[in-house]
Write a protein that binds this DNA or RNA. Structure first.
Lengths: 226, 226
DNA sequence: ACCTGAACACCGTTCAAGT
DNA sequence: ACCTGAACACCGTTCAAGT
């Protein structure tokens, strides 16, 4: 994951076979920046600095900054390991959902926003979709309904992971002290249901929420399809 | 929605009562920029230009750019009209979901990304949450389960609207010509389920997807609670 | 084919000096 | 209390000139 720093700047075409610069190297360096300092720290200049290269050189391999960001998102998704189908709708969907969560969040937590928030180069990610669609079809869905089911699942997962990445609306706070303070605030409010739910609103076990929602959704799908 | 342009720059404290600058005016101007040119066009400088003011003056009323962006998101959410509860779980949840969709997407489409993607100043948005929580409690949920249900709903809505705002992964393309081209591509792929579903994957009726997912989710909730 | 110097038109933000 | 000039440390990107 570390990338060599060039000892000195040099002008003109690099000696044959020595060009360290490539789209792949650039994406790797960009991933390093994301993992180390977050997405906001990614700039053509910081990425070039990691590689020991002039920022403008990047434009020989990457269209622009937006394409670079898309490239990172694509790279992460392409590393998603799709588990083999094992027959049951519930098992298959759970496995895919967890695989997606692993790729988008566990491996590169600081890149989650990027993966979830950018329309990614599509063909990279077809295999996971295939497995999910196959599961729906096998459960008796028409192709049209299977796509609806897929999109519902995907929306839920996206929203949940975005919350987990602290990039979406929540009342919950991850810091325990602030969470209890938040609870006090919510208990002092005039809205009765909010007040009753205050302890649960103030904190959030992401793992548990993920499982709850997923279970609920799969129940509904099984019910509608079978 | 239009904001006066100051005829000339002027230094020092403004004549009493004439200060046009205020947090509210700044947020209004920022909303104009978002609506007119998109979120990416928002900068301290562009917002100041709309107001005919020096960019640095904004810092007297707004902590920094991030706070400004959060302010916009909060403003939009605060304008969400919460429908009165009318008893049924299905009706109430549908109404709230549609209200959220209206506020986050219909009113200011170019700001959707902002609303969906930023942890918003919380107390603004408590009323809608109250209505939803009340519905879950009335349907027999414990406070803990009610919060789980709420979060599942919210995640689904967030993910769906993000897709609709073209800020999340889809295979579908809104341009009809590109959509049919995409369909051809998907039909040429080696994955059988993807191929079977190609026509439906290539396009997306957002309204319909929203209703499908919402219906599915509410089915599951009714089933689990009742 | 690939790199860089010079250059352009932008950013957010601080702080001291003005009224 | 509120505004701005001067200033700083950043951005993304183009293009022509180099090898």
């Amino acid at each position: 994951m570390s990338h060599a720093i060039r000892p000195e700047t040099r002008r003109g075409r690099p000696p044959a076979g020595q060009s360290t610069l490539s789209r792949q190297a650039i994406l790797g360096a960009a991933m390093d920046v994301v993992d180390g300092k977050g997405v906001e720290a990614v700039s053509m200049r910081t990425v070039a600095r990691v590689l020991g290269v002039d920022p403008k050189s990047l434009y020989n391999h990457v269209e622009n900054k937006d394409a670079l960001l898309d490239g990172i998102a694509g790279l992460i998704l392409s590393r998603m390991v799709v588990p083999d189908s094992c027959g049951g709708l519930r098992e298959d969907l759970t496995a895919i959902a967890r695989a997606f969560r692993g790729a988008a969040l566990a491996e590169h937590p600081r890149a989650a926003r990027l993966v979830l928030t950018r329309p990614v180069e599509s063909l990279i990610t077809l295999e996971p979709l295939e497995v999910a669609l196959a599961a729906f079809l096998r459960a008796g869905a028409s192709p049209e309904v299977a796509v609806h089911c897929l999109r519902t699942m995907l929306a839920f997962i996206t929203g949940t992971l975005l919350r987990e990445a602290e990039a979406a609306f929540t009342l919950a706070l991850s810091d325990p002290d602030m969470a209890t303070e938040r609870q006090r605030t919510l208990e002092a409010v005039e809205l009765p249901s909010v007040r009753a739910a205050a302890p649960h609103l103030a904190k959030c076990d992401h793992e548990q929420e993920f499982d709850f929602g997923l279970g609920l959704l799969i129940d509904a799908l099984e019910c509608r399809l079978g």
